[in-house]
Structures are given as structure tokens and as C-alpha cells.
Write a protein that binds this DNA or RNA. Structure first.
Lengths: 335, 335
DNA sequence: AATTTAAACTTAAACGATTAAGCAACTTGG
DNA sequence: CCAAGTTGCTTAATCGTTTAAGTTTAAATT
């Protein structure tokens, strides 16, 4: 890489000190009383030399990097990909850059990412925390690093967060199925103790109880890191000795695995089995009977999380807790 | 944010200079002949104080940031999301961090991103260049910034790149359709002069000519930034006065828009219309007759691009040009 | 015993910006 | 005409590392 142009080069060329150059290029010429001709010379020289400020040097001096660290489960997962895009756009608007990392819901990876980002002096974090990573997050809190949790939060910790109202989302989904005449409603969830999952399960259970269907409660929990084929197989087995006439899937990936299983097992939807998915996906639209699903307000979630983070970075230490309402997109898969 | 622990804090605590601490913590104790006890004390102190090196300071001093800038069209697009994930993993393995940005195929955004990343002193770029951004890329070349183009390249410029063999990909797709008995084969492409698109179109045209079907050549070009509904409408219009018995879609987004249009217009696939998509998507699997598609070797592309970039960052100035073979996943949509 | 070599550090400059404090050379007010 | 203020800069410290070039003390060699 060729040598870069620094403040000093401009200073030398114009014949002033770097301080003066810095003032002018930061728009402080009035405040710092730099002469009009000198200011013009400096600006001209900067343009001529194609000067670009070294953000690293500036960051070191200022103690802030204008960088946000974003940690999600997997950037390749469209849910997080879309979220990342919204965060990116919002960050750029406020002159921040995003560095990202995928944790794979794995504490070791998550910790490595957090450490890397802390070393790189990010000004704040947006994190979808993984199971069992409480201590890492807590360490951030103790260091007073601005932080917003997203998608899930840790009830034991005092942080800002932006999540879905998962309880109501699933509660309403169950109610919808009941209204459509289904009774033996099952749920397919992840084996995960985090709040987003437990709230979805709680929403399911309470709704079942409230509709006098507690005897029909049946939850299948699947490990997160299984490849899709495995998930599909497990759900497929559920389908062969079918005890449910409706299934709710607790995540997008589970919904997809479920759809593959239903397709493989040639179950008729909704006649034999009604389905409700999570998050939305083009595949939902092309399934024989388009899937009813729980839609998250991604756009707002991304924006709010950045807004709150910026707020915290400005010094606001008050934690903000946001639970957003989902929308049930009702289509043919529930009858 | 609470004050951070610096080398100086450790130095003070142990009673040595920061130089000694730096040597020890960088594993240079042998080479720089630091005493065994002192080294141990330093390591203990570092652990005790939970020292984390300030990457910003290190970067400033070393002149390299261990950061890769990744610019794609849209991180929310699964194609680029998956690519980003692979780049991320590969980068982490080599102790690099990725900062990313989405250009939306827009030169203004792309330039802003490049400038931001240059200011942040990224050590190298992986870029999916947008139409008409040649001068920006050229500026990078002139600055001798390590750079790998991905997905498309600029034939006029001397850069490394990793792309699909788009010509052969589409050529073979046409041949497949011809073998399946289709003759009036059309193509739906983007209005884009970049090489990836022009090569796909050229592959289509040459294949048609080679199969004596030049009279059947029909290409519909659609602007990139249209919302999906618009694309769907345009493709829908094509379908109502149907002059083709087969369609090849030149990208993933176009394939999806096409599927929606086909569904809306209730065309029977493959009887009335055969289809070939690009890139793969779960929706392809749930379409009435699963879609035949051109699959890109994403994993290898991501890895290769990082490998080449690391190579360039190590000082290798030789440009590497990689064209990868696609695979035609044949299914029911072509008869 | 004088000189060289080695061991175990320290000193201080440098990276490229920001910014508080200082200092001439004017202008103004009384 | 002199003190005070204003204008238009400069000086130099600082951020937290890295690293070339010393320095001191002890051990080895001649």
C-alpha cells in the first residue's frame, strides 16, 4: 500500500502547523480564529493531495471509534441478515460503522467475538446473546460498555433490550388454531433455555390451558446445532405416528425443516395437519397451502436497537426495555 | 465506559517499563531476553488486571489493522449473507475482523463505504463492485490496496477476482432445456452491464445460436432496484402473452419474482413452461415442481477470495483470476 | 586485570490525529 | 500612550502500543 497523506503533509505544503490544519478540516476555523486565506489554502491542499483522515489515529486520541459491534447467531440466516442490514443503514446515518460476528449460539465463539470487539474499542454492542453466556454479558455491564440485547434478553441482567412479545405471539397463534377448530395442537421448539424460546413455549402452554386443552399439550424440543436433515427426520418421525392435528414451529429454521418433513411425508395441509410458522420466508408462500406465520417487525426492531444504543453511547444510563408486537399473517395452512 | 487497563498499568504494578511488558505479552521474552521471574510477574499481573490490548493503538503503531472490508450489494440477500459468513469464518481463522457494508448496487453508497473503510485503514478489500464504479476501484488499485473482486469483475482493470463461470453456467442450462425438448427458451435478466450479467446473457445467446435457435432469442431486462411486486408484474405480463416455453432467470431475486408471477398466472410447470433458476433457495424446493437451478460454489468462492486477499496482503502482487464452475441441479421444473 | 560478551532491562521515538495552553503582533479603549 | 483585548497562529502533550537503540550489571574470555 502506498504511503498515505497525513495532516503533516498538508501542514508542510501550506507552511502551517498540524494544529491549524486540524482545526480547519474539522470546521473549527471560526471558533479557533484561523485566517480566511490560510483556511482556503489548507482546504485546497487537502483536496489536491486527496487527504483522508486516519480514523485509527483519531480514534486513539478521541477514545471512541464510531464503531458498533453486532453479534448475531448467524449472519447467513436471513432473519439476522435482514436485521444486520437495518442496523447497518441506521448506523451509517449516524456516522457509525458496523463490525459483525456470528456466534452460532456458542459461548466460546461469542466470548472470542466480544473480546475481539472490545479490543477494537467498539463504542457499543448489539448482541443476540447465546445460552449460558451470562457472565460475558455481565462483564460488559461491569465495564459499563453501552449494550443492547436483541431477539432475546437475560432476565437476571440489567440491560437494554429489544425483543418480540413472544408470549403473546404464540398465545395468539394457538388461539387462532383453536378458532379454526383445531384441538390437538403441538409445538416444535428448540432445546434452549433462553427467554425467547421459553416465552414462546409459555405462550403455547398458557393458551392451551386457557382453552381447556392442557391434556393436548405436546412439545418436541430439538437441539439447535443439528443439520437440517436431522431436524427434518425428527419432525418426520413425529408425523408418522401423528397425534396432532396442528403444529406451531418456534423458529424460522424449524418451520422450514417442518415443511420439508411434511412434504416428504405427504401430509395434507390443512386437512390432516394445520401449520403455523415463524418469521416468514419465501418458501412459506410456495408451500401447497401457503403458511400462516408469526411475523416479527424486523425493521422497527433493528432501528430501535440502534436508537437505544446511540442513546446509551451519549451517556444515558437508563435501561430501555422494548417488547414489540408480532403480526399473525393468516393464510391457508390453518384451514 | 470504565477506564481500561493499559500496558502502563501492568508496568507500574510490576515495576518495569512498558517495553518489557510489551515484549512478554507478545511472546518475545526469549528473543528479547526477559528474565523468567519478571516474565511470570508480568503475565500474572496481566491476568489479574484482566488486561486486553488496545487494538487501535497497536494498529496505529503497526500500520495495519487486521481488518478486512467487505462490500456486497446487500447483506440481507441470502447469497451475500452466506458469502459474508464464509468470509467471516475464514477471516477469524487468520485473526482478521470483517467490517461490511451494502452498496445496493449504487455507486454513491459504494464510494462512501470505500472511503470509510480506507479511513479506517482496512488492510484489504473484498468487493462485489457495482455498475459504473470503475474509477473507485481504480483509485484503490492506484493506492495499491490489496483487493479481491467477487461475484463480478471489471475486465478493464487489473485486479484479482473470484467469480462464477457465468457463461458456461447459462450455456449449459440452455443445453439442458434443449435436451428436454424446449425450443422457445427466453431469459429474464437485470439491466446491468457488469460482466456477471453480460456473461450470463452471452452464455444464453451463444447456446441458442449453437442450437440453431437464434430466432428464438428473447431477453427481458429488468432494472435492479425495482421492488419485487414490480418485477413480478413485468414477468407476469410476459407470461400472459406467452411466447416462450421455457425461461431462465439470471439471478436469485429474479427467479423468486418469476416464481411468484408464474404462481399468480397459474402457468403449469413444466408442461406449459419450463423454468431454471439461479443460486438456490428453499422456495425453489416447495414450488409445485421443484426448480432446476444453477448452483454456485459459495463455500469455495468465499474461501478462495479470502485466501487470495491474505496472499496479497502478505505482499504478493500477482493478480489471481478464478472462475469457478457452477452445478446444474436438475429437478422437475424442466420436464 | 583488562576486555569482550551476554543478559536483562530501559529510554524514547514513532504512528497520526486532537486540543489545551501559550505567544506574538495587532487593534482598541480610556 | 499604555494596558487590555483580539487575532492568528504555534507548541507540545496525549491516546496506547511497538521497537530500534541504548544502558547497566554480571559473567566469560584472554
Amino acid at each position: 500500500m502506498s504511503k498515505k497523506v497525513s495532516l503533516k503533509d498538508i501542514a508542510t505544503k501550506v507552511g502551517v502547523s498540524t494544529a491549524t490544519v486540524s482545526y480547519v478540516l474539522n470546521g473549527l476555523e471560526k471558533e479557533k480564529r484561523v485566517g480566511v486565506e490560510v483556511a482556503k489554502k489548507i482546504k485546497d491542499a487537502a483536496r489536491e493531495l486527496n487527504y483522508m483522515p486516519n480514523q485509527i489515529a483519531r480514534s486513539l486520541r478521541k477514545g471512541s471509534t464510531n464503531t458498533i459491534g453486532l453479534i448475531v447467531a448467524d449472519i447467513a440466516n436471513p432473519f439476522f441478515g435482514q436485521l444486520a442490514r437495518i442496523v447497518e443503514d441506521e448506523a451509517i446515518k449516524h456516522n457509525y460503522t458496523v463490525i459483525f460476528g456470528s456466534s452460532d449460539e456458542d459461548c466460546v465463539k461469542s466470548e472470542a467475538l466480544i473480546d475481539t470487539f472490545v479490543n477494537r474499542q467498539v463504542d457499543g454492542f448489539i448482541i443476540a446473546p447465546s445460552e449460558g453466556c451470562k457472565s460475558q454479558i455481565n462483564a460488559l455491564i461491569n465495564r459499563e460498555v453501552p449494550l443492547v440485547l436483541i431477539d432475546r434478553y437475560l432476565p437476571q441482567l440489567n440491560t437494554s433490550y429489544v425483543v418480540l412479545d413472544n408470549f403473546t405471539a404464540v398465545y395468539d397463534a394457538v388461539t387462532h388454531l383453536v378458532e379454526k377448530g383445531h384441538r390437538r395442537i403441538g409445538m416444535v421448539a428448540y432445546e434452549n433455555s433462553l427467554i425467547h424460546m421459553s416465552e414462546r413455549i409459555r405462550g403455547y402452554k398458557e393458551a392451551m390451558i386457557d382453552h381447556q386443552l392442557e391434556k393436548e399439550i405436546r412439545i418436541k424440543k430439538i437441539a439447535y446445532n443439528l443439520p437440517r436433515q436431522e431436524m427434518e427426520k425428527i419432525i418426520g418421525e413425529m408425523l408418522t405416528h401423528l397425534i396432532s392435528d396442528a403444529l406451531i414451529f418456534a423458529t424460522n429454521a424449524l418451520s422450514l425443516a417442518g415443511l420439508y418433513a411434511v412434504k416428504t411425508n405427504q401430509k395434507k395441509v390443512p386437512e390432516e395437519l394445520a401449520l403455523i410458522g415463524f418469521d416468514g420466508n419465501e418458501a412459506f408462500d410456495f408451500f401447497d397451502s401457503p403458511l400462516t406465520y408469526i411475523k416479527q417487525p424486523l425493521e422497527q426492531m433493528g432501528r430501535e436497537s440502534v436508537r437505544i444504543l446511540l442513546d446509551e453511547m451519549k451517556g444515558n444510563t437508563e435501561n430501555q426495555h422494548i417488547q414489540m408486537a408480532s403480526k399473525l399473517i393468516t393464510r391457508a395452512s390453518c384451514g
